[in-house]
């Protein structure tokens, strides 16, 4: 079983916050428009995005994704990190492009 903690290690991703490290990963979804993510992402997906404003946390929680993966070197601000920690939402980051990350995750699950 692939978990968030394991993905982080194997794919060499940066852990921003990881309150639920043992969450299982079953797939991935790439997207930056929030209603597309709400409509298309599945439960336990890795959500790969360049969006880092505070609204992504409600989307991540309600779409029930395993974690948010900020791609292309996007840096989260302090408030996002603090709130994610409180809400139990995993956030990872990487300098790789969304495509590279999707390819990587696809090969691992």
């Amino acid at each position: 079983m692939m978990t968030v903690a394991k993905l982080c290690e194997v794919a060499n991703l940066c852990t921003i916050v990881c309150p639920e490290p043992e969450r299982e990963i079953k797939g991935a979804y790439c997207g930056d428009l929030l209603s597309w993510v709400m409509g298309r992402a599945k439960s336990s997906d890795v959500w790969i995005t360049i969006m880092s404003n505070i609204n992504i946390l409600a989307v991540a929680s309600l779409a029930d994704v395993a974690c948010v993966l900020l791609s292309e070197g996007v840096k989260p601000d302090e408030e996002l990190v603090k709130t994610a920690e409180q809400k139990g939402i995993n956030i990872l980051a990487s300098d790789k492009t969304s495509f590279e990350l999707a390819k990587l995750i696809g090969a691992l699950i």
Binding site: D32, L33, L34, S35, W36, M38, G39, M51, N53, N55, I56
Partner: peptide
């Protein structure tokens, strides 16, 4: 700019 405005909200509600 915050990621809203795709015009998918109402269709999602229906779906």
């Amino acid at each position: 700019s915050l990621g809203f405005g795709a015009g998918m909200g109402l269709p999602n509600m229906k779906r």
